[in-house]
């Protein structure tokens, strides 16, 4: 996903002279082509994320659309107050880009797990929170941002995510990835969309109607209007690589009518102490296609 991001950013920078990339001494073997092609619109701010976010706001106040780039919690939580005050309050076009959503940096340990970011960024004023599922959605997000510069957070996976579907241009609405059962929706944000598609396939293979699968790359701002496509379902099942508190499921539960059952799979809020790859840690947390299947079949929210 990071390759798709940088390729699309480079393509946009060719047609959009406002685009400026600031990195926090990260992006080896990713950002070099951009830096080489646009030396006047590139800066390595060093390992100093508060200054990176603050100076990005300063650049943005003079007409640049700045993308700050780092991994996991470094471009976000480390400089949250700069994002809140300098960027969001002043409504300046800075996109904070974090590579390594959720457990993507699994065995690097808890410091590198970005699992509270959705909850936190949903609360910030003026901010668009974008969480693409695959390289196509990541490109769509960059295209949208280039056309609509604004305070924003782009929550990217890492590398090697598969192309999952051909996504339409980004919009605030959930996107139907695969039509299915009109009563049961499986809604994913981020790369766990692949788990939703696997669960749907398992259901089909078992001879049952597969749920309708949605992707939600746009998480904030959200409203009853942006989530209207989900109102016709009886059961909405959320998949997110994020702790349950403040994430996708809590968001949809607050926006959808109470008559709709909203359940889902998320990460436990306790700090992960296990060592393991993304897949290992997902499985340990029950964030798998078979657990999603159990929810599809269950009548109890907390199955």
């Amino acid at each position: 996903m990071r390759t798709a991001f940088i390729e699309e950013l480079t393509a946009q920078a060719r047609i959009n002279p406002a685009i400026f990339l600031v990195v926090g001494d990260l992006g080896y073997s990713v950002i070099e082509p951009f830096a080489a092609e646009f030396p006047d619109r590139f800066l390595n701010a060093g390992v100093a994320e508060q200054n990176m976010a603050g100076l990005a706001a300063g650049l943005a106040s003079e007409g640049f659309h700045v993308f700050t780039y780092s991994i996991a919690n470094f471009p976000t939580l480390r400089c949250l107050e700069q994002i809140r005050n300098d960027i969001c309050y002043h409504n300046l076009p800075v996109t904070s880009v974090a590579v390594g959503a959720g457990l993507a940096y699994g065995n690097l340990g808890y410091s590198h797990h970005a699992v509270q970011d959705i909850a936190i960024f949903r609360t910030l004023p003026n901010l668009r929170l974008l969480s693409p599922a695959d390289p196509g959605e990541a490109r769509g997000a960059v295209q949208w941002l280039s056309a609509n510069p604004c305070p924003s957070y782009l929550r990217l996976g890492k590398a090697g995510e598969k192309h999952l579907y051909s996504s339409p241009p980004l919009s605030p609405n959930p996107v139907v990835v695969q039509q299915g059962n009109p009563d049961v929706a499986l809604v994913a944000t981020g790369s766990v969309l692949s788990i939703a598609l696997d669960a749907a396939a398992l259901e089909s293979a078992a001879g049952r109607p597969a749920p309708t699968v949605f992707s939600m790359p746009w998480l904030n701002p959200a409203s009853t209007a942006t989530t209207a496509a989900l109102r016709s379902f009886k059961h909405v099942i959320c998949l997110e690589e994020h702790i349950r508190e403040g994430g996708l499921r809590e968001m949809l539960a607050s926006l959808l009518p109470r008559s709709i059952r909203v359940s889902g799979l998320a990460l436990p809020s306790d700090a992960t102490v296990a060592v393991g790859s993304q897949n290992f840690l997902r499985a340990a947390a029950g964030l798998t296609a078979t657990h999603a299947q159990q929810l599809i079949l269950s009548r109890d929210d907390d199955a």
Binding site: G54, G58, L59
Partner: peptide, 17 residues
């Protein structure tokens, strides 16, 4: 401003612009 420590990074961004 109001939270101390924000002005100089922002001013630096402007100078860089």
């Amino acid at each position: 401003t109001g939270s101390l420590g924000h002005g100089l990074p922002f001013a630096l961004g402007k100078a860089l612009a």
